[in-house]
Each structure stands twice: as structure tokens, then as C-alpha cells.
Design a binder for these strands. Sequence first.
DNA 1: GACTAAGCGAGACGGTACGTCGCGTCTTAAA
DNA 2: TTTAAGACGCGACGTACCGTCTCGCTTAGTC
Lengths: 204, 204, 204, 204
Amino acid sequence: MEKAPERPSRAERSKQAILDATRELLAEGDARSLTVEAVAARSGVAKTTIYRHWRDKWELALDAVMIDMLPRFAAPDDVGDTRKELLTFTDSVVRILGATQTGPAMQGLISEIATRPELAKDYRKRVVEPRREQLKPWVERGIARGDLRPDTDVRLVHELLLGPVFYRLLLSGGPLDRKLSNSLVDAVLDSFAPVDSAKKPKRR
Amino acid sequence: MEKAPERPSRAERSKQAILDATRELLAEGDARSLTVEAVAARSGVAKTTIYRHWRDKWELALDAVMIDMLPRFAAPDDVGDTRKELLTFTDSVVRILGATQTGPAMQGLISEIATRPELAKDYRKRVVEPRREQLKPWVERGIARGDLRPDTDVRLVHELLLGPVFYRLLLSGGPLDRKLSNSLVDAVLDSFAPVDSAKKPKRR
Amino acid sequence: MEKAPERPSRAERSKQAILDATRELLAEGDARSLTVEAVAARSGVAKTTIYRHWRDKWELALDAVMIDMLPRFAAPDDVGDTRKELLTFTDSVVRILGATQTGPAMQGLISEIATRPELAKDYRKRVVEPRREQLKPWVERGIARGDLRPDTDVRLVHELLLGPVFYRLLLSGGPLDRKLSNSLVDAVLDSFAPVDSAKKPKRR
Amino acid sequence: MEKAPERPSRAERSKQAILDATRELLAEGDARSLTVEAVAARSGVAKTTIYRHWRDKWELALDAVMIDMLPRFAAPDDVGDTRKELLTFTDSVVRILGATQTGPAMQGLISEIATRPELAKDYRKRVVEPRREQLKPWVERGIARGDLRPDTDVRLVHELLLGPVFYRLLLSGGPLDRKLSNSLVDAVLDSFAPVDSAKKPKRR
DNA sequence: GACTAAGCGAGACGGTACGTCGCGTCTTAAA
DNA sequence: TTTAAGACGCGACGTACCGTCTCGCTTAGTC
């Protein structure tokens, strides 16, 4: 006989409740003011249960942030236009950080990520590297199309596109908007343009 | 008769002792594990005295970090070579963050800077803006020499040069070295090269 | 099968440890020099735990003092002799204040009791009133026996017997001894003697 | 030529300002909440100056209280009526403690007086003993008039009259009013009435 | 009538304890 | 057996006042 439609286990259910509560709380304040006690209260779960699943509140916060962040990564579809593709990539990040609760959350979380090896490793594995891998086919198609130099370094492209975004989020306070994405993509396209590229007009 | 060489006031002396102790402690751990109590103990100063001069440990930490950071800013001397000049600018930052205690300190401090308006404002006024102002004459000379386009945006140059550095420091974990500075300067020079620049060989 | 002899709960155990430590410390100094931090250290309990059970050190001190004071109240047994009964009452107080650590403790505590309504209320409810109630049957028997006037005011008797004792403890510094109790009881017996009492010799 | 009317020295003037400010502050709160800093601010005097004249705030507070208390002692005039005389004595204390700021001040001060030998000594010398001396002629006249027994103990009379007053002020919280003074004087008169006194009606 | 040293205001300092917060652990009782 | 509920040990926080210590400026009193 068929099993009922997979009611999640008790453990799964409380895990979910915890993550939901965490995301709610992150949306209300920033990660710095997140409190395990508040998460427990909000989710109706005992503090003990939280610690059963996460080492501490930072790992929990990182997990919660990822839930909102990961699904927003743009898929590396081929739309036949390198600029458009890079813009899709860059702008998805700009919007996540600039227009959702993920921005403030990352602001509060970043010190923990930067200073704790486990968190840093986790973040790189789940975010930095996937995003780099995702960028790769786009860059490769750009090279194939003659929009980028054959020796274009994906890593550097990645850093030139996202570094300034985080710099604004964390330090300079500049606006995270479409203009930024555009400028960054332009800069990268110019920077890695083939040496012998026809002197076509460079700006949109 | 000559005056004695101006012994600093008591207030100045304890302020200095506090800042020194803070810098020592930052050098030993990161900013996250900095403790007002430890600063007091190390400096031989009462906790109260620390709170008399700084709102909280983060403002203290920021001040202490600046002491090490600000004097390291390269002076915008004219050496007649735009690449060299931009490299001086970029590399000074890379070295401060990559080879001194300022790197770890900033890692622990950044969440506070990013989330607290007063700290953010202070940081921008004392670091971001001066650095941008400092970059301006270099960029202007680059334009004058025909190495950069006349419409080159100093702000964007600033962000393209430093954003990736912080991205490595905080998230991607990539190396902060001479190679990075070089790549960034190359990218910027290519990106903002005049449209009609002679097709001289682009790399060193 | 028999249950084990009810090991007290953790909460009870730490409460007890706190009270014990407090009583020890009160015995060593007076209530004014009592420190929550010292109580915590002595009892091996966290400061927080103390504040979980008592608003502040004064409520704790009062509780601790009561532990030593309350069980010493003499029971209002009928021994057939009004003088003896009143003496028992008075002397129990004189001895508690004069010969145990309760005296010094009360000296340090009294300002708080006198100035803080909650403490005052607590003290009256737990000490003043019970003691007055306790005195009542003795006075009533005294009236029945013809040793006291029928309109003898228990409250006033109470105050005449104890007021001078506290006055010595707190202000005049006179000795708290058997002689005092005797004098006070004599005074009260004379004061409230029936108008028509036979002119029996008035002193012992 | 005549000297101007003796302008007090600077030291005297600031001493006075300090005492005035202290009395004002005592009138606003109780002695427990008195702070040296507030006294300095209110009197426009430096903290140092306060400590030049008083060991600590308690000695200052005691001095300030005495200023209000001492002049209120009733003079032991002979009005030809023992009851009236004792009532004058008792009621002056009841009114000082019950109707002026001296009551609350004493409540906050008493623990210091009781626990610190210097303060206790000072208080006894300036208040307890003078008051006892003052009571003496009244008692003696009472004996001479046949209202009191020849062996009447002034000290005990003193304690029976004032002990209950302080007991109410500090612990029982009963009213400090004319009724109390009356009851106490009655009790004392009855208590120390000559053995062979005519059985005159005992109450007013 | 100017000079000088004591006394003063202002206010920072070292210090003790306060009462609070949030962490991560441990206990207890119920489901 | 796993969980919710919640007390606990701990470490640091930022605050309040204490009593002390400079530091110039005033202010009497002395030459």
C-alpha cells in the first residue's frame, strides 16, 4: 500500500520552524541583533533543539540567509548577448543585496564569515564557488563570440563584478542599483575586450 | 631658558595607553574578541576611563585601526607613469589588509561599520572619502597623459580597485598580493583606455 | 518500595547555597558591606542566579536574616505568670539582637527597610505583625489574671517592649542584656497595672 | 572706624553652601540617594572642597541633619506640670521625625550611624546625651512634685519615650502623631508613679 | 600695592560593584 | 526517547558613585 504523502518527521518540522523564525527575525532586524532565545520563542521550539541542529546562531543565520539567497541565482542561459548575460549575473546579486533582507543580514553576518574558518569554508563552497562556476559558461560563450579575450580570467571577472557591490554594501554606502550593474559590466567588457576588436562604439 | 618638551596631559596619556593596548589586543586576536575589560587591564586604565572617551568598544576599535591604517596611505606623487601610480594606490591597500594586523581587525570590525550609521559615517569620512580624493589627482593626470578616457569616473575606479580586495579579505579568501594589485590596475587601465588609443601592447 | 528521600531540585539547592553564603557573609561583616559578587563567589553560584531569585541584595539580606530570626520567636506558652511570659517575649528579642549576628545585620539593613516600601511591607508582614499576634494571647491572659488593665493596648505594649531595644541597637548603644528586658517588662506591668490593684510590692 | 559686619571667610561660605545644598537634597529624597556629586553641583562647590571638610557623605549628611534637628529640642522650662513637660519633650521628637524632612533623612542615615563607630559616637554626643541631660531636670522636678518615684531612671524614661517613636519610624510604620506622644507619656507616668500615690483618676 | 602661597573650581581618573544580556549547557517532566 | 520549558554557569557589558588626583585661577594676607 502507498505511504501517505510523506509527512515530514518531527525533526524536519522543527528545523523548518527554526529556519522560518530565523528568517523572519533577520527580516526585522539585522543579523547582529539575532538572538537564539528569540528564535526559540518565535518558532515555539526549545533552545536545546536549535543547538541540536546548529553549532551556534551564526551557522543558523548563514543557513537562513542562504535559503533566501541561493534560489535567486540567475541560471546561465544562453541569450546570445554577452553584455546581457553578464548583466543578468551582476544584477541578480545587486538586487539580492540591495532590495531584499539579505543585504542587512549579510552586513551583520560578514564578520563571522570572515573570521571563522568553518563559516568561511561553508560560504565559499555554497556561494562563491557555485557563482564562479555559473559565471564560467557565460564567459566562455563571450570568448567564443569574440566579446572577451581568450585569456579572460573568470575569477577576476567574478571579483570585478561583485567586489564593488559588496564594497558599497559594507563600506562606501553607495547605491545598489541598475546603474551600478551596468557600469560594472561595461568596465569588465572593456577591460577584457580582445586587443584587435574592431573599434565599435563602446557604450550602450 | 627652554621650556620642557611639553609633557602630554594626563587625559592624553591615558587615551594613548588605551589605544596602544587596543592595538596590541587587536594584533593578538581579531576585533570580535576584543574586550573592554581586557583593554582596561592591559592599559592599566579604569574601564570607566575608556567609556569616557569612546561610546563602546567598536568606536575604540575603529579608532585604533585607523591609527595603523591612515598613515599608510600612499601620497599621490607624480611619478610620470599612470600604471605605476595606480599600482602604488592599490598596492598600499592590498598590503595593509594582507600583511598587517589591520586585515583581521577589519574582518571583525566590518559588521559593526556596515550596520551602525555613526561608525559607517565615520569610516567614510575618514577613509573612503580621503582615499577617493587622493585618487583623483592620479586619475586626472592619467587623463591628461592620454592613459585614461576623459570621462573616467573616479568613484568607479576607486570601487573597481578596492572592491575586489575587500571581497577577497572578507568572502572569497583569495590571496592579497602583488599579483592582485597588478591585475586590478591592468583591468582598470584597459577598461578606461581612450577609445582611439594606439593599439600598443596592452600588458607589461 | 520506598522512594529515595526527595533530593531537592537544582533550583532549591542553589537557593539554599545562596542563602547560606549570605548568612555567612553577614556573620563576617554587616549588611552594608554585603556584596552580590561575594555571595556568588562564596556560594559557587552565578550572579545571574541570585538576581533570578531576589530583586537585589537587600531583599536577599532580609530573607537571610529572617532565617535566623523567625525560628527564634518564643512560643506563647501559658506558664501561669504574666511577668515571666512577657519576659520570655522581650528577652528573646534582646538576645537575638544582642547576641547573634542578627544584630549587626539589622543595623546595616534597617535603612533599606525603612526607606523601601516593599521591604518595609515584607518586614511588617513577616516580623512585626506575627510578633504582635504572638503577644496578644499573653496580654489577654494577663488581663484575665488581673495583672493588666482590661483596656491594655497590645500595640503599645509591643512598642514599649521592643522600641527601646532597637533604640539601643541603633542609636544609644546601650547594652542589650537581661537587665534591659527586666526593666522593660517591669515598666509595662506597672504602666498597665489595674487601677485598683492591691498595693503589692511592685519590684522583684 | 567700625569693621564691616564680618563677611565670613571663603571657607565658611563654601561650608555653608555645602550644608545648605545637602539639606535641600535631603529634603528632596532620602539620605540613601544623596550623592556627593549632586551636593557639589547644587552648591557650586568642587567635590574636593566637600572632602576637605567631611570624611564622606555620611558625616556630611549627619551634620546637615543636625542643623535641622538640634534647634528644635524643646527647652526644659518649668511649667509646673510633669505630664505637660514630658509631653513637650516627647512631642518635639515626634514632630521632628514625623513632620519634617528629618524623618526620611534619619531613615536613610541610621544604618551608617548604627554601624560606624565615629558616627555613632558623634550622634550620641550631640543628640542622645544632650537629650538625656535635658530630660533630667524635668524628671527631677517630677520626683520633687511626687509625680514620679524617687528611683526613676532617667535613661529608661528616655528610652521608653523615644524608643517606640523610632520603632514606628523605622520598622512598624505606625503614625507619628500627638496620640503617640500622649500614650507614651501616660505609660511612663503610670509606670514610674510612686507606690503610694493616691488613687487619683489616671487618664486625662 | 605688588607678591606669593594657600585654597578653590573644574573635572578626569582608578576603582568597586552594580544589575543586565545573551550564550551554550544541563535538568526535569511530559508526550 | 525525544522534546519543550526553563534554570544555570559564565563572561562581558555599560553605568553609577566613590574618593583621589592634577591643574590653573582666585583670593587673601605679607612684605
